[in-house]
Amino acid sequence: MIVRRMLPDEMTAVSDLREIAYRADRLLDASPTYAEALRLLGADGHGEVLVAADGDQLLGTIMFAPWSDRSELARGADEAEVRAFAVGPQARGRGVGRALVNAIVDRARQEGVSRLLLSTQPAMVSAQYVYRARGFHRVPERDWSPLPGVDLLAYELVLKD
């Protein structure tokens, strides 16, 4: 398995992988319309989509999103966000999530980011385990709800003070 940047012709496969992973965990139940937004993240060139691949099979994906006026959690140019973290159901338990999170942390360091932030649903217990194991910690003051009934927990990793 390698982690690399998504190739230009892989956007559809990445979108499919995200949706399959989120649906497998019933993460779209509270907001089915989010599926389309999830599929499109990174398609406009904003952010950098990474994939974990084994040969030509995509196992998982994650997106590095530098601060912009579209940021959900990042509040300035020294912060960035993790978006659209997904591991295919068939690839779970193989270290794919850990490899993707490590790669996104490395990417943030390369960009000189001081804080890397992310949102997660309370039900995303496996993802939260990976985040905490990598050093992310909860920042409840940045928790938010994009829609009624959809509560998101905020985590951050401080890379430099």
Rank of each mutant, 00 (worst) to 15 (best):
V3R: 03
L7Y: 03
L7N: 06
L7D: 05
P8G: 11
D9A: 11
D9W: 13
E10Y: 01
M11Q: 13
T12S: 15
A13E: 13
V14Q: 02
D16Q: 14
L17P: 01
L17T: 08
A21E: 01
A24G: 15
D25C: 12
R26Q: 14
L28Q: 06
L28M: 00
D29H: 09
A30T: 06
S31E: 15
T33M: 15
A35M: 08
A37P: 07
A37R: 12
L40H: 06
L41R: 10
G42F: 10
G42H: 05
A43H: 09
E48W: 10
V49R: 08
L50V: 12
V51F: 09
V51K: 05
V51T: 04
A52R: 07
A52G: 03
A52F: 01
A52E: 03
A52W: 07
D54C: 14
G55Q: 04
D56E: 15
Q57P: 06
L58Y: 07
L58M: 10
G60F: 01
G60S: 09
T61Q: 07
T61D: 10
I62N: 01
F64H: 06
A65G: 08
A65L: 15
A65T: 13
W67E: 08
W67M: 02
W67P: 01
S68Y: 01
R70D: 02
R70F: 01
S71W: 03
E72A: 09
E72W: 12
L73C: 12
G76F: 08
E79R: 00
A80F: 05
A80W: 02
E81M: 05
R83S: 01
R83H: 12
A84E: 00
F85V: 15
A86P: 14
V87M: 10
G88T: 10
G95W: 10
V96H: 06
G97H: 11
G97W: 10
R98Q: 14
L100I: 12
A103L: 00
A103E: 04
I104P: 00
I104G: 02
I104V: 15
V105N: 07
A108R: 07
A108H: 11
R109F: 11
E111R: 07
G112Q: 09
R115M: 06
R115L: 06
R115Q: 03
L116G: 00
L116V: 08
L118A: 06
L118R: 02
S119C: 14
T120N: 04
T120D: 11
P122W: 03
Q128V: 05
Y129K: 14
R132H: 14
R134E: 03
F136M: 14
F136Q: 05
H137L: 09
H137T: 15
R138N: 06
V139Y: 09
V139C: 13
P140Q: 04
E141L: 13
R142T: 11
S145P: 02
P146I: 13
P148N: 13
P148S: 08
V150W: 02
D151T: 11
L152K: 02
A154Y: 03
V158T: 13
K160Q: 14
